[in-house]
């Protein structure tokens, strides 16, 4: 008589109903695409409120602006699905930024050197995050908090606290170039998004990610090497942060140790708005991309409307909480 289960033991009648009526499908649809509908509503609202919002140039502008945080948020999504957290992404952006920039002066090294170094540093920091939390049994909150402080310090040390400018044109293309009229960051954002979506939803790696977040014990019993997988997940998050940092460095055309402050929270917010659950086992890449877009649309729309900076902060906070609230309520019903 200890648990609910034993109470339920030896039950008389089973109460399973076959629920496939169309009426039940509506909440299911809403639960699947709810945050997307909220996003569309927000876009519609902004379009009504300001005439400058809904046009190709501005929309491209918004997507470009969210590309950077969006890519970071994808890695964070993997991490949060495993019930973890990554607080180091913002500082890691700074570290990758200064290291990559120092190898990207014109005529110094071929382009692949700063690129590989950038993603390499990101992935390595992620590897440390993962190893410390998985093998060292230190909660990821603490492990990545340590990395957050250490990476920022390293960035300052490496750059002597100063921006590193004078970057080659080919490197700058990453942040400000475009292909067929579409800014390069958007192309990377969509491409990485597609890849990560396929990885998360359709591969062994992705399924195991969900399994670990859903029930770590059960995952072990299903033969999943949980420690190794967690290390890989954090490494992936660091790798994606590296990509984003490279593009951001190119965008501002300098490696800066002060870059990316609080970006980790924006990335976590994007994932959570997009339906990723901090309790683990739930979340999707398209959801996170939408989450990032919601933040971007808010920033852009409020700027366009010339809302005062004080009010912007208040409104943003309120709208984000409301969106998640609506989303979680409907999840409960489904």
């Amino acid at each position: 008589m200890k648990t609910e289960e034993t109470i339920a033991k030896k039950q008389t009648i089973s109460h399973d109903r076959d629920r496939t009526g169309w009426k039940e499908k509506i909440p299911e649809l809403f639960s699947r695409y709810g945050i997307f509908l909220i996003f569309l509503a927000l876009v519609a609202l902004m379009s009504v409120l300001t005439p400058h919002f809904f046009n190709v140039y501005n929309l491209i502008n918004v997507v470009k602006q969210v590309s950077f945080i969006g890519i970071v948020a994808m890695g964070v999504t993997f991490v949060i699905i495993t019930k973890g957290i990554d607080l180091s992404s913002g500082s890691l952006i700074a570290l990758v930024s200064v290291i990559a920039a120092s190898f990207a002066h014109p005529g110094d090294y071929p382009l692949f050197v700063p690129l590989l170094l950038g993603v390499g540093v990101g992935a390595f920091a992620g590897l440390i995050n993962g190893t410390v939390s998985a093998k060292g049994m230190i909660p990821p909150f603490i492990a990545t908090l340590g990395m957050m402080t250490a990476a920022r310090g390293l960035a300052l040390l490496y750059s002597d606290g100063r921006p590193i400018g004078n970057l080659s044109d080919s490197f700058l293309f990453l942040g400000s170039g475009d292909l067929f009229g579409i800014p390069f960051p958007i192309i990377v954002f969509l491409f990485v998004g597609l890849l990560m979506h396929l990885l998360l939803s359709n591969t062994k790696f992705g399924k195991h990610t969900y399994a670990i977040g859903g029930n770590e014990q059960a995952a072990r019993i299903c033969g999943i090497n949980v420690d190794r997988h967690l290390i890989l997940v954090y490494t992936l998050a660091g790798f994606l942060t590296g990509i984003s940092a490279l593009m951001l460095t190119a965008r501002i055309s300098a490696g800066q140790p002060s870059m990316g402050v609080m970006y980790e929270l924006d990335a976590i917010a994007a994932a959570v708005i997009g339906g990723t659950s901090l309790t683990g086992g739930i979340g999707t890449i398209p959801g996170t991309m939408i989450g990032a877009l919601i933040i971007g649309v808010l920033n852009n729309g409020l700027d366009l409307m010339n809302v005062s900076s004080y009010w912007q902060q208040i409104l943003k906070g309120a709208i984000i909480v409301t969106a998640v609230l609506i989303d979680s309520r409907k999840n409960k019903k489904a």
Partner: peptide
Amino acid sequence: ENWIQSGD
């Protein structure tokens, strides 16, 4: 970028 988009 956002200010430019506002057309002001």
